[in-house]
């Protein structure tokens, strides 16, 4: 008996010894920060109250949501972030689908194209920003090419679009890699069956390719949403802490402002947690969609199916 428990003890000890760094890291750099931030978001810990901070309850959150004098950009920053997601996520998916489909047709040079598209992914982010900043300047490459004179980055109506474009440009390589390998997993016999049935290239794409990579599309949707909500670093690099351009003021950009400029750590913590909640909700929705719908939605769908005749899809 004793020897058995001794062995068991030794096994457990060894196991934990191996994951000790992980546990330590987890406690110090995951758990503790989250707890501290949580607590602080209920205080008024900021530059003015570094030592004499007090517990203020939900005041920080309420101020964020309601006080449009103190936080004029709060809701508009959420709208901007939302708008950015609308610009990037569908475009990313469609572009990845189309480019991957083109690369998947029997052409030479697939490896070459994949490499070229992937170059931005291995270019230092700041360097890419420097490059684009100069390209988008009034006398930069883009304007030279089109003979126009638009200051893209400082123009309210173009700025956000341009950031979306940069993000799509930079992400294409990675997206294509993922999408292409998903496409290659589709059983070629299905294309052959469709070929014999008389399907043309477009039809094969719509009826076989797209449905076949649906899981990947879903993956892009979810990751696109999650990283879309966190957009802000690009703006930070280009404009610094503050910007005159209102249309690029995203939620996270506001977070940076609050952190660096006003040093209002309490509010920043509150904003961080709010972001956390949003992302958590998205993740939960994703989980649900992948693993089954809640019962009441399923009943609605069944009722509709039984009522109708065979629905034809052309």
């Amino acid at each position: 008996m004793k020897a058995q428990t001794k062995q068991k003890l030794k096994r457990n000890a060894t196991g934990y010894a191996f994951i000790l760094p992980l546990i330590l890291y987890f406690v110090v750099f995951q758990l503790a920060p989250m707890l501290i931030a949580l607590v602080i978001s209920f205080t008024n810990y900021s530059l003015e109250h570094l030592t004499d901070y007090t517990f203020v309850g939900f005041e920080n959150f309420i101020e964020l949501f309601t006080n449009s004098v103190k936080y004029p950009m709060f809701w508009s920053s959420l709208k901007t972030t939302f708008f950015y997601i609308l610009l990037t996520v569908p475009a990313n998916i469609i572009l990845a689908l189309v480019v991957s489909a083109l690369l998947n047709s029997k052409i030479k040079g697939e490896k070459f194209f994949k490499t070229v598209f992937y170059i931005p992914s291995v270019t230092v982010g700041v360097a890419i920003m420097v490059m684009w900043q100069q390209m988008l300047a009034p006398d930069g490459l883009i304007n030279q090419l089109f003979g126009t004179n638009v200051d893209f980055l400082n123009n309210e109506s173009t700025a956000l679009v341009v950031f979306a474009f940069m993000s799509i440009w930079g992400g294409l390589g990675y997206n294509v890699l993922i999408m292409l390998s998903a496409m290659k997993n589709i059983d070629p016999a299905m294309y052959e069956a469709a070929e014999i049935d008389g399907a043309g290239a477009v039809q094969k794409f719509l009826y076989i390719t797209v449905p076949g990579v649906m899981p990947t599309v879903f993956f892009f949707l979810v990751t696109g949403l999650i990283s879309g909500f966190q957009v802000g670093e690009q703006m930070l690099i280009i404009y610094g802490d503050t910007t005159m351009v209102q249309s690029v003021y995203t939620y996270v950009y506001g977070l940076y402002y609050t952190m660096r400029r006003s040093c209002d750590y309490a509010t920043a913590s509150a904003m961080s947690y709010f972001l956390f909640v949003i992302i958590l909700i998205i993740t939960l929705i994703q989980f649900r969609v992948q693993n089954g719908r809640p019962k009441f939605i399923q009943k609605l769908i069944d009722r509709r199916k039984k009522g109708g005749e065979l629905v034809e899809k052309v």
Binding site: A189, M190, E192, I196, I208, P211, G212
Partner: peptide, 30 residues
């Protein structure tokens, strides 16, 4: 598609996102 032949594959090659009806109707629709 113009040889007027039909083929049955080893792994069936059915289109997974379509119903049986649509699978069978596919060629005719094309």
């Amino acid at each position: 598609k113009n040889r007027n032949i039909s083929m049955v594959f080893q792994n069936y090659a059915l289109f997974p996102n379509m119903s049986v009806y649509d699978n069978m109707a596919f060629g005719l629709r094309m």
